[in-house]
Amino acid sequence: MTALLDNAPLGVAVRIAGIDWSAMSEDEGRRLREFGLMEGVEVTPLHRGSIFSRDPLALAVGRMRVIIRARQAAMISVEAAA
């Protein structure tokens, strides 16, 4: 059962099932990889936006915390973490 990272509930760890690399620019894709966001990696969505917007999204990836936009999160499909 897969869902999009953009819709994943906050505070629950999920595993990245797939990333639609073709939907993003080369730079975007590389930065995601540099952040360690790749297939099979576990991430936890932590915080989302402010009163003004649901953008951006803060994630925990291992010991690192990274910020991405909802648009990118919508290109990442996730499944329940084991």
Binding site: G49, F52, S53, D55, P56, A58, R69
Partner: peptide
Amino acid sequence: TRAAFLMDGLMAK
């Protein structure tokens, strides 16, 4: 960076 996070939504508009 937290300030940047909080402001991003507003700045995106």
